[in-house]
Every structure is written in C-alpha cells, then in structure tokens.
Design a protein around this nucleic acid. Structure first.
Lengths: 226, 226
DNA sequence: TATTAAAGTTAGACTTCTCTAACAAATATT
DNA sequence: AATATTTGTTAGAGAAGTCTAACTTTAATA
C-alpha cells in the first residue's frame, strides 16, 4: 500500500517520462519542481521508491519508472481522470474546477469503487480535458496528438485536449470560445511571432504561439463526435 | 485546515458524545478504543485539539467538543453520509460496503463538491443506514428513536436505522429480510431472555434481544414511505 | 479507610515527509 | 583544459502521529 505522497511521486514521474513522450526519464530537480518540493526531498523519495522497485534510480543520473511503477502510476491517472469526468458530467463542475478536486479523489483506495464509477460514467474514453482514460487493464490508447501551433493555415481540426490544466489557462480557453470537441479552423499564421488566426463557431480570433502550443488537436476524429 | 487524523478524532468525539445522546463527554480510553489507537496517542491529540479550541479537555477528567469542534464534526458526518448515499444509490454498493469507502471520501476538502453532491442525490435526509444527514447549515433533525427491543407485541413499525455498522451485523440484518423502511410487526416477546418474534414481508423470524437493540425503528413514519 | 484496580498522563523513541545548508559530480563556457 | 554553472547528494533537524513503559490520579471495594 502506497502513501498519498508516494502516489504523487509516481504520478509526476509518469507525466514527466511516459506520457509526454519525452526522453523517458527525468532529473531530480525537474521532478522536485513538478511536485513543488525541494530537490533534496525528491532525492530521498527516489531512493525510497527504488527500494520498492518502482523507480529506476542511480546516483547522479536520470530516473524512470520500472514496469511495476508504471502500472501503479497508470491506475492513479485512471482514477484521476474518471473522477474528473464524474465531476464534470454528473455534478456540473466546470472544466477548470475539476482538476483540484480530482487531485484528492484519486487517492481513494477501492478497486470496486473505481470499477463501479467507470460503469456509472458509461466507460468514458476521455476526461473533460480530452486526455485519454486508461482502461482497467492499464491500456492507454494513444491518440495522434498535434498542437494547434503546428497546424497549417486552411486546416480544420478538433480540440481533443489541452496540455496546461491551470485555472488561468482554462479560463482563457473558455473565453476564446473553445472547448473539447470544438471544431477549429486555422485561418492564417504570422511568420514573425507564430501568432495564429483561428475561426471557432464562425468567430475569428487571434491567439499567441504559446497559447496554441498548449492546445492539442486531432484532425482524424474531427467530425465524428458531437 | 485540519488533518485527516484530526478530523477522525472530532468525528469519534461526536459519535461518543453528542450523537449517542450519552453523557455529552467521553474519557481518553474510550476515545482511544473507538479510534483503534493507544490512550497515550489520544491524550496527545486531545491536548492538541484543546489548543485549537475544538475540544474541552482537562487533565484527569472527561473531554467534550466545543461549539466550534461540534460544528466541524457535523460537517464531517454530513460528508460521510452523503458519500454513503452516493455509493448506495448511484453506484450500487451494498448496505454493508459503503462505510469503509465513505471513511476515506469524507476527508475530501471541497465545499462546492459536497453542495453539488447533495443536489445530485436530491437532498437526501437519511443515509443507507437510516442515519440522519445533517443539512449544509449543520442542522440534524433528530428522529424519534426506539430500538426494536423496546417495541411491544402487536406493534407495527418501520426500520429507520441501525446502531451497529459492522459488516457482520449488516449481513445478518440482510439475512433476516430486513432493510431500511421495511415494515416490521412485533408478534411476541419472551420474558425470560427478551427474544422477539417478528414478521417481515409475511415471514416470521425469531431474533435475539441483543440484535433487536441495534435496530432502530419509528412508528410515526411507518406507512408513509416506499 | 486502606488497598487495589482502572483511567489517564508523561517521557522518550520511531516513522514519514519535509526542510536548510554544505558538499560532490556532471555539464557548459571561455 | 580550466573554470564556472548547473544539477544532484548528503547530513542533520523539525513537525505530525504513533508507540511502549513508567508513572500519577481517580474510582471501586473489601
């Protein structure tokens, strides 16, 4: 049985390595930053998790999750996203409110609860942010992810996820008229600063490159979903 | 902000003092027993909670909740019972499974969550065990509580709550054909050992005095509810 | 009332997670 | 390559919650 803290470390490691399809490993400082903790603290925990065979750790080198660690991390991510879906779909929370509460709910220990919640929600595939919900067996369907910043003018795509879950960002997303599964048309892009002009529900808007980088879109599932 | 542990102490104090309408105060050993902790540990916490002005504590004497402590305790009880209702009504948990999971869920910190959950559940008045759910303002309607052991032969009443929430007890309750709001007719009682013959759904059953003492019934709301 | 039993308290220690401050290794820069 | 900067580690300490073991107070009883 893992403590809340240990679970949080596994989850952060998962986000920093597996999920963002980066180098597959992360440094102590980076991990500490993600968790809002001092590097010394993260270092201690890495050693502890190495003892439990959940993390590959070697002095002065990068760390990664072992298969066992990855499996546990995925179940935590699954719980987090199912709870977010519950809060959004059933309780009427807004997009930008769900994360904080789900951070707490994800640590509830009950296999049965998660199974029944999954069923109650009708086995959702995405959470309210568009992120994939792993199955009970730990399988994550990896969708083709492009950021809006990479889309070319003239293209039409669908918002499937956002990278940044901060309240400030999400509220800005809402203000721009965007939401999950919303169709976006790229009108033009500025070569100088990467600013993009988009069209949403027939309304045109100029967004910064930095903002666009945090919007994940999919052209394949574009017109299939409501 | 209280820790999980502090919340658990407040809740136990509430159950041992206010709710069971006992003497309104409880001893260190009794509290420790309830929490499954050693008296020394409970003693430390009582002093800590006294510092926070949530508990009335004096060396070598009984302890009780201050008004502030009582208020906090009631909100925890409210959360616990709302979650139990959710698990039972929406997720299809059985009567005897909900308590354990609700013990964890009750510590989630989000006023908004509880408000929305309350609404989602349609502002329930009782939890699956028949216990009263305090309102958002902390009001608990105290129902007229008699135990089945006190009912006289010939009387008809409705099961509104149980005193014992242990799995063993609840499963026995189920086996006897009883559940919340079930009509019970007292057929006869044995003067020698207090054994009672009851009729539930036309089926007769003999139950022990000890068992009957843990069944709370109400004759007033007898035939009003489904 | 004197003694025993029960209830309550204290002191010191352990675990988990965190920190600061000093130090060591690896990487980047000139 | 020598130095500077970044990154990572260690040692020591503190807060929270728990324990054991020894001790004190209160209540029960003979």
């Amino acid at each position: 049985m893992l403590s809340f803290t240990e679970e949080n470390y596994l989850k952060s490691l998962f986000h920093l390595t597996v999920e963002n399809s980066g180098p597959g490993e992360t440094g102590t400082n980076e991990l500490a930053m993600q968790l809002g903790v001092k590097p010394a603290t993260a270092n201690d925990m890495l050693k502890k998790l190495k003892e439990k065979k959940l993390v590959n750790y070697m002095k002065y080198s990068k760390s990664s999750l072992t298969p066992a660690g990855k499996k546990l991390a995925v179940t935590i991510v699954r719980k987090h996203r199912l709870w977010e879906t519950f809060l959004f779909d059933k309780l009427g929370f807004t997009w930008d409110e769900v994360h904080e509460v789900a951070e707490q709910l994800e640590h509830i220990q009950s296999e049965k609860l998660i199974g029944k919640l999954d069923k109650f929600l009708n086995f959702p595939v995405h959470d309210p942010h568009g992120d994939v919900i792993p199955t009970a067996k730990g399988v994550m369907k990896t969708p083709s992810k492009n950021t809006l910043a990479e889309e070319l003018p003239g293209h039409q795509c669908t918002l499937v996820a956002v990278k940044d879950n901060s309240t400030a960002f999400l509220q800005y997303v809402n203000k721009t008229g965007l939401s999950i599964n919303k169709k976006i048309k790229v009108v033009s892009r500025e070569l100088y600063d990467g600013q993009i002009e988009i069209e949403v529900d027939g309304k045109k808007n100029r967004i910064s490159h930095r903002f666009a980088e945090n919007i994940i879109v999919d052209c394949k599932i574009c017109f299939e979903r409501k």
